[in-house]
Amino acid sequence: MVLIVGGAYQGKLDYAKNQFPDVEWIDGRDCEEEEIFSCGGIHHFHIYVKRYMKRNIEQQIIIRNPQIVIVSSEIGYGIVPVDRFEREYRELTGRICTRLAGEARQVHRVVCGIGTVIKG
C-alpha cells in the first residue's frame, strides 16, 4: 500500500500518476462503494470517506486490497468546523489515514506538486 497526501490543489494526482504509471484509478467522488477493494488506485479518498462514513474501512482495505495506492487531501489543518457532521468527517478521515499510514510501505506528501517521501 502507498498513501499520497497533501493539501487541496497541490498536484497530488499528477504526481501519483507519474510515480505509478501503470495504476488504474477510480475517483472517490463517484466510484461504487465496493470498487475500492478491486481498484489499483483511488484519488479523492477523503471524499470517499465522506460519502460512506464507514468506521474501520481502513481495516477492510488493508485486508482486501493491500496493494492499493491512495491519494487523499489533508483536511485537518483549519479551524474546527461549527457543523457536527463536518467535525466528525474531518476527525474520521484523520484517524483512517493515520492507520493507513501505519500500514503503508510508503507515504508521500505533496506540496506545490513536489513530493517528499515521509515514510519508506
Partner: peptide, 8 residues
Amino acid sequence: TGGSGSGK
C-alpha cells in the same frame, strides 16, 4: 504540531 486527528 499537526492537523486534527493526525496522531499528535
